[in-house]
Design a protein around this nucleic acid. Structure first.
Lengths: 238, 238
DNA sequence: ACCTTTTCTCAGCCTTTTCTCAGGCTGTGA
DNA sequence: TCACAGCCTGAGAAAAGGCTGAGAAAAGGT
């Protein structure tokens, strides 16, 4: 079970008309400790929001009754200090809309990885000043390993290491779950885009890449738990 | 990340009858720390102003009931030391507006970039002497790079560099977010006019222009974070 | 009206990253 | 100890992302 405590008490409203997507998202968010409600339409979203008073909304821009921006506008006009994470299909072009990232809001194009969704949502909550507890400066640490979300830097013992986007996300996932074993399929579900249809073997490849970058130092931190998955740990904790 | 604290306690009244515009503006202003109220008509503006006592007003000249100048006149007649930032459609009325902006007032034509709106508003508050705290000399610095808002000058190591308006704004945005990664879409949302419908690829072009001007010096400051965005940093941080 | 500057699009080129695969290695249970 | 499933890793093809020059279109100045 991931460290739920830190996200507890944050209420997230997920608005999407495809139930498969909204189920996927809400399951993930609940799993990491958020309190979640869902809505399938714009009007339902407004109704639920009024009573649920969410801290943030995950909002599909394409809704059956109205578009996401209209919903956003109405939520805002009620004077709520609410963060919005838009979801947009990437059919053809980035149908980008002005001001999507102003006001601390953010958006992601489908398909996305669940790990990134959670990371963005946390960043959003931090920005709009709701997450007071989580004041640490956007850095995740384990042993002498440090991952900085704001600068996208990874350091081991102070030494800067280059990582590709996927390597970065994989490492973040391992760090968030430090000391716990995570399976290859868990990793695949969280780090890769949810429509990835390839083999879980790719995780092995990326673990190998990461090891070559961060575990050429001593002691090694990424440990294989045969038949189960991977675990970030210090040798002392053995 | 814009520091919110520094604008706190400044009250801004936004007057525009298009709710999409006034939402866009008020969200941006709230995010950078202003306290905001909105009004959709001239008479509403006067009512709200009386009670809200704003330090400055963002005022569309084209209002359903009266024009912006009339509203401005009435606000002034109440003896308030108030700054006005006019918004005008691009229809040739600009000259008329220019003539009417007395004192520390200012005007912008729609559509504008949100980053510029915030910059102009801050300058306005500074000019009319409301913003006493924020007396710092309108210069943003990073390493040996210096951007002067008042004179629109950019210097690297003391050397004056010519920049086009868009280059200037892009550089300002990078400077405000120095050391943090900003994505191409974030840049687009903040630096380009809010109705820009083109591709995010234009950001690459302008980054290229900027590099040719400021990064022919050593060390280079603009760094690409592949798959994520751009970041202003010193090599020392490496 | 003319010329200059600036904005924006586009395509070609190059680099990095992603992903697959196959052969070799290793830990574990019989 | 042997055999096998699970894991590691190098090689390399394919895809994605990013840079820049060229040039059309728009804006601005005189």
């Amino acid at each position: 079970m991931p460290k739920s405590s830190e996200n507890t008490n944050y209420r997230i409203l997920v608005v999407d008309d495809e139930s498969s997507i909204s189920d996927l998202i809400s399951t993930s968010l609940r799993f990491v400790g958020f309190e979640v409600r869902t809505a399938a339409t714009g009007s339902e979203a407004l109704t639920v929001a009024e009573e649920f008073k969410p801290h943030a909304v995950v909002l599909d821009v394409m809704l059956p009754d109205s578009d996401g921006f209209e919903v956003c506008r109405q939520l805002r006009s009620e004077g709520l200090n609410i963060g919005v994470l838009f979801l947009t299909a990437k059919d053809g072009m980035e149908d980008k809309v002005a001001g999507l990232t102003i006001g601390g809001d953010d958006y992601m194009t489908k398909p996305f990885s669940l790990e990134e969704l959670v990371a963005r949502l946390r960043a959003l909550l931090r920005r709009i000043g709701v997450a007071e507890i989580n004041t640490d400066d956007e850095k995740i640490r384990f042993a002498d390993l440090e991952l900085n979300e704001a600068t996208h830097e990874v350091r081991r013992g102070g030494v800067l290491l280059e990582t590709s986007p996927t390597e970065f996300q994989l490492l973040r996932y391992l760090l968030i779950n430090a000391d716990r074993v995570v399976s290859k399929s868990q990793i695949l579900d969280h780090v890769w885009q949810y429509d990835f249809r390839g083999d879980a073997g790719i995780v092995e490849t990326y673990i190998s890449y990461l090891r070559k970058k961060i575990d050429i130092f001593d002691p090694p931190l990424i440990h294989t738990v045969r038949g189960v998955g991977y675990r970030l740990r210090l040798p002392a904790a053995k």
